[in-house]
Amino acid sequence: MVVLALAGCVRQSTAPAPESPPTSVPGVPAALPRPDHVLVVIFENKSYAQVIGAPEAPYLTSLARAGANFTDAHGETHPSQPNYVRLLSGSTRGVTDDSCPRNLGDAPNLARQLLDAGLSFAGYSEDLPADGFTGCASPDGRYARKHNPWADFASVPAAANRAAGDFPADLATLPTVSFLIPNMCDDMHDCPVSAGDAWAGRTLPGYVDWAAHHNSLLIVTFDEDNGTADNHIPTILVGPMVRPGDTARRINHDTLLRTLEDMYGLPPLGAAAATPPITGIWTTRP
Rank of each mutant, 00 (worst) to 15 (best):
H213V: 13
A163W: 01
I236P: 01
D197H: 02
P157A: 08
T176K: 02
N252Q: 14
A164P: 06
T247D: 13
A163D: 10
H253Q: 14
T176M: 02
I251D: 07
R250P: 14
D223L: 05
T203W: 04
G201P: 04
H253E: 11
V156E: 06
R243L: 09
H253G: 13
L180I: 02
G196Q: 02
V238I: 06
D186R: 09
D223E: 11
D230E: 15
H214W: 05
G196I: 02
R243K: 12
D223P: 08
L237A: 08
A169T: 11
G227T: 05
T259L: 06
S194N: 13
H189W: 06
P244V: 05
C191H: 06
A195D: 11
H253L: 14
I219C: 07
W210Y: 09
R250S: 15
A159G: 14
A172I: 06
P192C: 08
N231G: 11
F222H: 12
N252W: 07
R202W: 04
C191K: 04
H253I: 10
R202M: 09
A211D: 07
A229H: 12
R243F: 00
L237Q: 02
V220C: 04
T235N: 06
L204E: 00
E224G: 08
P168N: 00
H214I: 12
G227N: 05
N231M: 08
N183T: 07
H232I: 07
W210E: 10
A164G: 12
E224Y: 06
F167P: 01
A212V: 12
R249F: 10
S194K: 09
T203S: 11
V156Y: 01
V193N: 08
P244H: 02
A169R: 14
S216L: 10
D230H: 11
A229P: 11
E224F: 05
D197W: 00
P192L: 10
L204S: 00
T247Q: 10
A198M: 03
A172W: 00
T247C: 05
A198W: 03
D246N: 13
A200D: 01
A160H: 03
H189K: 09
I236W: 00
G196D: 01
R162T: 00
N231H: 04
H189S: 10
C185R: 15
H232R: 12
I219D: 04
Y207A: 08
P192V: 05
P157C: 06
P192D: 15
D225R: 05
A158M: 10
D223I: 07
L180Y: 12
H232A: 09
L257S: 05
H214A: 14
N215T: 09
P157S: 06
P175R: 01
N226Q: 13
N215G: 10
F167K: 01
H253Y: 11
V156I: 13
R202P: 02
Y207R: 09
T235H: 02
G206A: 03
P240E: 08
G227I: 10
I181L: 07
T203V: 15
F179T: 12
D186I: 03
P234R: 00
N161H: 13
I236T: 02
G165T: 14
A158K: 15
